[in-house]
Design a protein around this nucleic acid. Structure first.
Lengths: 112, 112
DNA sequence: CAGCACTTCTACGGCTTGTAGAAAGTTGCT
DNA sequence: AGCAACTTTCTACAAGCCGTAGAAGTGCTG
């Protein structure tokens, strides 16, 4: 249920790539598109409501940070997809059959 | 881009689980909800437009079949999710770290 | 050709997303 | 205190997707 629109994803990407929490203005400046700050604020508020962003309301330009890392979030998405089928393993088997040899090697390494 | 609504998913599930292609009426009957046939036809047409369903127009009740198996489709979804990040392997590493031991074993087996 | 079964067309209401102006709130300066 | 600049909230709208289905069209069968 945490699927993202295009702009939402761009904003999340900035937050994921930033060490520090960002203000709406900073997000706005760093976006490629030239958008009104209110647009960015709306998106940030929606992301907050979705539970993907945490907002520090103490400081005056509020600062926003991603709740989960990009990897964590993406793993959640993978599990969501896998949750739509009755047989996860069947899907994983097929998935593994579809990856490149080098990626398969990486997976073997990870699995120890 | 092949994300599905709730009803769309129910219909796809029927098609995936059926050996034979199904007519709109058959789909309609097999659905839990009690919907008008036209509703089902609309959904089938939309699924066809999305490229998920193939329609045989030759026979008179048209017959509908899934283009890809459920596993194939789900693998596509996984790849779509993985395509949103710059580092697939980082996500896969974390994913593997999150699965059960028995599933990890299955993955090792599959990877040979 | 008449009637039935099936399909297409059209439509509407609700929800999500991108977009932003108008209005309200906050803070710091004088 | 009062103003100016900055920031946030509220409200809104258009487009697109999805569930839903009636009305109208098409084609087979007796």
């Amino acid at each position: 249920m945490a699927s993202l629109g295009e702009l939402e994803r761009s904003v999340m990407t900035l937050l994921w790539e930033s060490e520090q929490p960002l203000s709406a203005n900073e997000v706005c400046e760093q976006l490629d598109e030239d958008l009104a700050v209110t647009t960015v604020l709306t998106v940030l508020a929606r992301l907050e409501k979705k539970g993907m962003v945490l907002r520090a309301r103490s400081s005056r330009p509020h600062r926003y940070a991603a709740v989960a890392s990009r990897e964590e979030h993406t793993v959640e998405m993978l599990n969501e997809v896998l949750g739509t089928v009755p047989d996860r393993e069947a899907v994983l088997a097929r998935f593994i059959g579809s990856v490149s040899e080098s990626e398969a090697a990486a997976l073997r390494r990870i699995l120890g």
